[in-house]
Lab assay of single mutants.
Amino acid sequence: TFTSIVTTNPDFGGFEFYVEAGQQFDDSAYEEAYGVSVPSAVVEEMNAKAAQLKDGEWLNVSHE
């Protein structure tokens, strides 16, 4: 299960995956970082959410 939350205070020191406002979700980078295949429906969902981000916001993507 993939989830996401919007934050204005990303923790770059941890093992977190963020999408910056104005960027798209990079499923290849996510797969490389976590060894998890990302279904195309999830990629579309995360890109739709990322498109709604305002300046200074980040989308924190995770999975269980």
Rank of each mutant, 00 (worst) to 15 (best):
T1F: 14
F2T: 08
F2G: 07
F2Y: 07
F2A: 07
T3L: 12
T3D: 10
T3H: 14
T3P: 08
T3Q: 12
S4K: 04
S4D: 08
S4V: 08
S4I: 06
S4Q: 06
S4T: 10
I5Q: 12
I5R: 06
I5V: 14
I5S: 14
I5P: 05
V6T: 07
V6F: 00
V6P: 02
V6R: 00
V6S: 05
T7D: 04
T7M: 06
T7V: 14
T8H: 07
T8N: 09
N9C: 14
N9T: 14
N9V: 09
N9G: 07
N9E: 13
N9W: 09
P10F: 02
P10A: 04
D11T: 11
D11Q: 11
D11H: 12
F12N: 05
F12W: 11
F12Y: 07
F12P: 07
G13H: 11
G13D: 13
G14L: 08
G14N: 09
G14W: 08
G14K: 09
F15P: 11
F15M: 14
F15Q: 13
F15D: 14
F15A: 13
E16P: 05
E16D: 12
E16G: 15
E16I: 07
E16M: 10
F17K: 01
F17V: 04
Y18H: 05
Y18G: 01
Y18P: 02
Y18I: 05
V19R: 00
V19N: 00
V19L: 07
V19P: 02
V19M: 06
V19H: 01
V19E: 04
E20D: 05
E20A: 15
E20S: 11
E20K: 12
E20C: 08
A21E: 04
A21F: 13
A21I: 04
A21W: 10
A21Q: 09
G22Y: 05
G22N: 06
G22H: 07
G22I: 02
G22K: 06
G22F: 06
Q23T: 13
Q23C: 11
Q23Y: 11
Q24D: 09
Q24E: 11
Q24M: 14
F25D: 01
F25G: 02
F25N: 01
F25I: 03
D26F: 05
D27P: 15
D27Q: 15
S28D: 12
S28N: 13
S28C: 12
S28T: 13
A29C: 09
A29H: 06
A29S: 07
Y30R: 02
Y30W: 08
Y30T: 02
Y30P: 01
Y30C: 02
Y30S: 02
E32H: 13
E32M: 13
E32V: 11
E32P: 01
E32R: 14
Y34D: 04
Y34N: 06
Y34E: 00
G35W: 03
G35S: 07
G35R: 05
G35N: 08
V36Q: 06
V36C: 07
V36Y: 04
S37D: 07
S37H: 14
S37I: 13
S37G: 06
V38M: 05
V38D: 02
V38L: 06
V38A: 03
P39S: 06
P39L: 00
P39M: 00
S40A: 14
S40Y: 09
S40W: 08
A41G: 11
A41H: 14
A41Q: 13
V42Y: 04
V42K: 03
V42E: 03
V42T: 06
V43P: 00
V43N: 05
V43D: 02
V43G: 03
E44P: 03
E44H: 11
E44M: 10
E44I: 12
E44G: 08
E45L: 10
E45N: 06
E45V: 07
M46L: 15
M46A: 03
M46N: 02
M46Q: 02
M46V: 12
N47D: 05
N47S: 07
N47R: 09
N47Q: 07
A48E: 11
A48H: 14
A48L: 13
A48R: 13
K49Y: 00
K49E: 05
K49P: 06
A50W: 00
A50G: 04
A50M: 04
A50E: 03
A51V: 06
A51R: 12
A51T: 07
A51K: 12
A51P: 04
A51G: 09
Q52S: 09
Q52G: 10
Q52P: 02
L53I: 04
L53Y: 00
L53K: 01
K54V: 09
K54L: 10
K54H: 09
D55H: 09
D55P: 14
D55V: 10
G56E: 05
G56C: 05
G56Q: 03
G56R: 03
G56D: 06
G56S: 04
G56L: 03
G56W: 04
E57Y: 05
E57D: 04
E57M: 01
W58Y: 11
W58F: 10
W58K: 02
W58L: 03
W58A: 03
L59P: 02
L59A: 00
L59Q: 01
N60C: 14
N60F: 12
N60P: 02
N60R: 15
N60I: 15
N60K: 15
V61N: 00
V61G: 01
V61P: 02
V61T: 03
V61W: 00
S62W: 15
S62H: 14
H63R: 06
H63P: 03
E64I: 15
E64F: 05
E64H: 14
E64R: 14
E64G: 13
E64D: 12
